[in-house]
Simulated scan of single mutants.
Amino acid sequence: MTWIEKLKSRWGVSAGWQVLVILLVFTCTGFTVMYTKRWMAQWLTIESTWATWMFNILIILPFYQVILLMYGWIFGQFKFFWNFEQKMFRRLMNGFSRKKS
């Protein structure tokens, strides 16, 4: 089984070209966020470690999600990325809502 076949099965897509488009969307999103983050951090003159962490969590993480959906829409895979976002958000919320015994 090739890596494309494994990803098709894992992501529930029917064609190999969809896997390549999804990977392209992740690539474009990563580059966009990386360059934007660098520019924003310089503009805001963030230097301390705690400020960097807060910036990444409060600004960059939501920005990444929006850009991911935007590129997914541009490349015709919005439905996949919308479902991806919902699943990720559910997992994140489940991690915060677990009760400790």
Rank of each mutant, 00 (worst) to 15 (best):
V13N: 05
R38D: 13
M54E: 09
E85A: 10
L92K: 06
F96D: 04
Y64C: 07
L7K: 13
F75N: 00
F96A: 07
L61V: 14
L92C: 08
F81R: 02
G72K: 00
F81M: 04
G12F: 01
A15L: 10
A15I: 03
S97K: 13
L23Y: 01
E5R: 04
I22N: 00
Q77L: 08
Y64I: 06
S9M: 07
F78W: 12
N94Q: 13
I60G: 01
E85Y: 11
G95M: 12
M1E: 07
W50N: 14
V25C: 06
T36S: 14
G30S: 10
F84M: 08
T49S: 15
K100P: 05
V19F: 03
E47G: 15
R38N: 10
S14R: 11
T52N: 15
F31T: 09
F80D: 01
R38P: 04
A51C: 03
M40V: 15
I57P: 04
M34G: 09
A41E: 15
C28W: 00
T45W: 11
G12N: 07
E5V: 02
F78C: 02
T45K: 13
M54W: 13
V25A: 02
L7I: 03
N83I: 06
V19L: 03
N83T: 03
G95Q: 11
V13Q: 01
Q18V: 02
L61W: 07
K6V: 07
W3V: 09
L61R: 10
G16Y: 02
R98E: 12
K6I: 08
L20H: 08
G76A: 03
V25F: 00
W82Y: 11
F89M: 12
W50E: 15
K6P: 03
R90Y: 12
W82S: 10
S101A: 14
C28A: 06
F80M: 01
G95A: 13
M93T: 11
P62D: 04
L44N: 08
M70D: 06
F80H: 07
I46E: 05
K37S: 15
